[in-house]
Amino acid sequence: MAVITREDIIKPENLVYKRTSLLVDCALSYCPGCGHGTAHRMLMEVIEEMGIQSKTIGVAPVGCSVLAYEFLDIDVQQAAHGRAPALATAIKRLMPEKYVFTYQGDGDLAAIGTAETIHACNRGENFVIIFINNGIYGMTGGQMAPTTLPHMRASTCPYGRDTETMGNPLKITELVATLPGTCYVTRQAVHTPGNVRKTKKALRKAFEYSYAKKGVSLVEIVSNCNSGWKMTPVQSNKWMEENMFPYYPLGDIKVPAAE
């Protein structure tokens, strides 16, 4: 009786999944277990499947993903902290036939770039915002972010976020969903296979809606920061489910009227 060996299976014709070639073939600069890498991969899979590599301009932020342009095999501009939506506004207005997206973290999008975020959303610019929310400033060493949870510890709130003096976490995604200029606002995650697949679907919809001139699509991805949270990657994903998701529930917040 024939036995199917590992070698029999590992053949090009049997390939069912590999890292997309639109992710540059190099090691990512992110910490082990960080959701950025998965978010990058889903983004590039969508660009690959839509066949829009030559028509896509990305904008990288300041923060952990400042080096995103090193990993994404498309034309990318690196923005000053928080200014990505301003860059994207100009790119999309000057080249309306292009697909334009920004990739921003919580400090970038919801603190220093709040004005740029809200006004780009309010003007109904036709680009996609990918918002990675891990409730902390990862790159600079784990400081409090606008999205840090109440009582959550960070290096600038070592005794936990005191909402009396530091305010409450900003739900900017819900906030921009109230603006007529946004067409599709959703909150996703990338820590389980099911969530990753949903995120990919959301990203594809976001690109399609904004290209169809419906306005800004914002895909928030609630993610982990195991280094900043001082946990193992697996622990951080569990902590995220137990603590982040109740405050930042997953799912669509706004979908285009036609749906």
Partner: peptide, 11 residues
Amino acid sequence: VVCPDGVITVY
């Protein structure tokens, strides 16, 4: 799908 660094290929 879940590997953050995309290091796994599946057949």
